[in-house]
Structure formats: C-alpha cells, structure tokens
C-alpha cells in the first residue's frame, strides 16, 4: 500500500546510520547550493552525486514513484509556464540568440531558452533526491533528539518529529475517508472532469480536518498526562551520539558547498555560458 510513501523506513545503510541533524544540515546546504547556482557543471555533478547517494541508501524508486511523478508533472508545467511568460529569458541571460524555429508572435524557440530551462530542471532534479532521502531515511524521533542537541528547543524539535510521524497516519485517514466518500458516489476517477474532481476532493478534505483535530486532542491530552513539558530539558530514548561518519559527512558537504559556490561565482555570474 502507498501508506509509507513519505515516511521513514528503517533499513541498514550508511545514510540511515547518520544522525538526523547531520542529514538535516547536509540537506540544507545541498538545497542552498542547488538554489544559488545556475552553473550547469555544478548542477550535473550534484545530480550524479545525489543519484549515487540515493542508491547507497537502499531506498527503492518504487517506494517514491508516486511523489516523483507528481513532482515531474509540476516541473513540466513550470517549464511550459516559463516559456509562455518569458520566451526570451535565455537570450537575455546569455546574450546571444540562436533561433531553432519560430512559433508565432514573440515566441521563438531558441537554444538559449532551452538551455536555461534545462538548468532550471536540473536544479530540481539535483535537490529532489536529497529531499526524499532526508524524509525516508531519518527516524523522526532521532531527528528531534539531534536537533535538540544542536541547540533547537526540545518543544520545537518534538513538534517537527511528531509532524513527520503523523504523515502515515494522515495518509491512512485520507484513504479511509476517500473510500467512504467514493462509496457515496463521489467520483474521483478519471471519468470526471478535473474541475468536478477538485470540488469532490473537498468532500474528503473536510472530514480529514475533523478527524485530524480529534487526533490532536487525544495526543495533546496524552502528552500532558505523561509529563511532556515538565522540565526545561528532557532526555531522548532514541538519541545517538555523533559518530565519525557524521563528521566526515558534514565536512564533505561543507567542502562541496564551498567548491560549488567558488565555481559558480568565479566569473562574476551565476550562469555558466557555453555560448561565448
């Protein structure tokens, strides 16, 4: 079932063994690098590297295929929208204009525009595996404990952990509710128009909110009854000490981040220009 789509799955891999905070910091730096740079060489390197790490982590593509598909769809829409609203952005950036063919009006398909949009797509591609990796390999509770260790208040850390932990529960609720509503004749299949399906989805969202609120009331009572928030500090059952591998991972990612920034900004522009 798709219930574990976006949830932690415990496996034995070097990535799983890293502490949650390490993975979090690495993920932040990785995303930052991906966001800042438009340098094709850096992006390509990041893409290859993240795919390798993804393989090492023993996550199966099948487990995330639904999310991936979803992201790809939006990425495609994004690319098309960029072309519609700003068909000559690439020309502006790279300063040359190699027209491949003309469509209509101001819509020329240029090599520059295609290259620009390729870079945008690469940016997503280099960050998405890292994001999935983080969600799928990080034990929420251990993550909370390591966030707490690096100075985040334990209440905030715990809130993050419990949000992550409830993703599968909410997914399960969603499934049950979707079933119940479909059994009343609400069609969510492709036989309905997109507009109607969106309207019908509302019939699922409302009960989902109510059942989530119910869940929240129970859980906050339980936390009170079991003494959460009693002291200024708390200990963690699933805490793990920082190990050598954590330091190695952090140092490597910091180094990569620095190098990528140097390569990106070396010539005073965030863009790698193959056209001059």
């Amino acid at each position: 079932m798709a219930v574990n789509m976006l949830a932690f799955v415990d496996r034995s891999s070097p990535i799983h063994r890293l502490s949650g905070a390490t993975k979090f910091l690495c993920f932040i730096m990785w995303s930052l690098a991906g966001m800042l740079t438009y340098d094709t060489r850096v992006l390509l390197f990041m893409l290859v590297a993240s795919l390798i790490i993804f393989t090492v982590s023993k996550i199966k593509v099948k487990e995330v295929s639904f999310v991936l598909l979803f992201i790809f769809l939006f990425l495609l829409l994004n690319d098309i929208a960029i072309f519609i609203f700003s068909p000559l952005e690439g020309v502006k950036i790279y300063g040359t204009k190699h027209v491949l063919f003309h469509i209509a009006g101001q819509y020329d398909v240029t090599v520059e525009q295609l290259f620009y949009e390729l870079n945008i797509t690469l940016k997503y591609f280099s960050i998405i595996p890292a994001a999935l990796l983080f969600i799928k390999t990080t034990n929420p509770s251990e993550f909370a404990s390591s966030l707490n260790r690096i100075g985040v208040s334990y209440r905030v850390a715990f809130a993050v952990a419990i949000a992550l932990r409830y993703i599968p529960d909410i997914q399960r609720d969603f499934q049950t509710i979707a079933h119940a509503q479909q059994a009343r004749g609400i069609d969510m299949s492709r036989k309905e128009t997109i507009f109607k399906r969106a309207k019908n989805a509302l019939a699922i969202v409302l009960p989902l909110i109510f059942s989530s609120l119910e869940r929240i009331e129970t859980i906050s009572n339980v936390m009170d009854l079991r003494g959460f928030g009693k002291h200024k500090k708390r200990t963690w059952y699933s805490a793990r000490p920082f190990k050598k591998s954590d330091y190695i991972a952090l140092i490597t990612v910091v180094a990569l981040f620095t190098v990528s920034m140097l390569v990106t900004f070396y010539d005073g522009s965030r863009f790698y220009n193959p056209f001059v």
């Binding site: 509770s141 419990i162 003494g227 959460f228 002291h231």
Partner: peptide, 17 residues
C-alpha cells in the same frame, strides 16, 4: 507518541530527564 514500542514506553522517562 513514539514510533516504536520501546520509545513509546520511554516517553514519560524522557520527560523526567
């Protein structure tokens, strides 16, 4: 509250430091 059995049983102890 916890993800695993052990962690959930430990919750009150965690809060007691």
């Amino acid at each position: 509250i916890g993800l695993t059995v052990g962690e959930d049983i430990a919750f009150a102890l965690e809060n007691d430091c």
